[in-house]
Design a protein around this nucleic acid. Structure first.
Lengths: 190, 190
DNA sequence: GTGCTCATCTTGTCAATGGCAAGTTAGAGT
DNA sequence: ACTCTAACTTGCCATTGACAAGATGAGCAC
């Protein structure tokens, strides 16, 4: 079976279920996700997902790990300094909403999953690398970890509030532009 | 029935269910909340909660509204400038984790609920009042809305990451102190 | 090519849940 | 006393997550 879907063995069910999960989460959020609905979307029996992911937490953990990998890629691709990395963080959250909404829901995840931990470290490394690229004469140069924490907090908070629909209309409809203005307040000289 | 709990009419069931809901959310998160479990905790039948709150979204909306009221109180009580208001925001999130975890989960709430909207506005007003108290000679004085957005983003992000357990150990175990350091980076002169 | 083995997927089942419909109780007003 | 109505109960159904046991077929040794 090259890439078809017929037969007793699906051949690529794990990937198909992951894609279906991302789609379903995008429609109704992670809480409303149903393993049986995923099975229906993929055209398999209701117990097939459990074989590949164990249980619901296992599936969401796989989605989160994929999300952290995608985030690490997005942050690295935006290597134009901390400001642009921060903008990319917000852009990722908006464009990959389904992934992002799962990635920080520790109550739904298996926090000790090796793949998840590895992907989280890749993302963290991308963030810290951009902090290391800040000019050496900035006021807070003696505490790069503090810079990283502040930068992460402000972009994560902005992204979360944007996705929650909590921000007023005056912020506009361009999340990247609005995020750039906010981050610029934290690092005025970059 | 002055304040007892016996009898066919509970007398204070709505309040009891809200308290039970906050307790249950604190134990297992909002997603795992079960109306039937709440009914058991309160010693009533499984359909009693639906009478007072309609459905699960109605109950969580009531919890969120109560949370925004508590948050507005906490922000007003900390009237020592924007820095302390921000610290109070983080303190509220940590100390009232159950409420906070529901307040921004728009997928679980009835966003058009009048009580919820009123409570949200009370919180927003408290935040904006503290921005208005910033010194008039600061660099960004011409854009107080931008200041408010940046401040909200950074404290909300820090609180969310703290609750998610996403922050590294080096941040320490005192959320208020760590939050103060982070906020100070955004408003260095306050 | 025959038979073994095991990952993959299915069928069947159970307890728990959310939500709805219909019935019961008690308190408040007249 | 009578009625009205909010407060709560009982009963029910479809859906879900999880588990157990069975069926299938692809790869591999020989």
């Amino acid at each position: 079976m090259s890439s078809g879907t017929r037969g007793y063995h699906h051949g690529d069910l794990r990937r198909a279920l992951l894609a279906a999960a991302v789609e379903a989460i995008g429609e109704s959020g992670p809480g409303a996700l149903s393993l049986r609905d995923l099975a229906r979307r993929a055209g398999v029996s209701h117990a097939a997902p459990a074989h590949h992911f164990g249980d619901k937490a296992g599936l969401l953990t796989a989605v989160a790990a994929q999300g952290f990998d995608l985030l690490a890629d997005a942050l690295r691709a935006a290597d134009g300094g901390l400001l642009e990395v921060g903008v990319a963080y917000v852009g990722f959250a908006v464009e990959h909403r389904a992934h992002f909404e799962v990635m920080f829901r520790s109550d739904l995840l298996r926090a000790d999953d090796p793949e998840l931990l590895a992907a989280q470290e890749r993302s963290g490394a991308a963030l810290h690398a951009s902090v290391a690229g800040l000019p050496a004469d900035r006021p807070t140069a003696s505490d790069p970890q503090g810079d990283a924490l502040a930068a992460w907090s402000i972009v994560h908070g902005f992204a979360t509030l944007w996705l929650a629909g909590a921000l007023p209309d005056e912020v506009g409809d361009d999340p990247r532009a609005a995020a750039r203005a906010v981050i610029h307040r934290l690092f005025p000289r970059n």
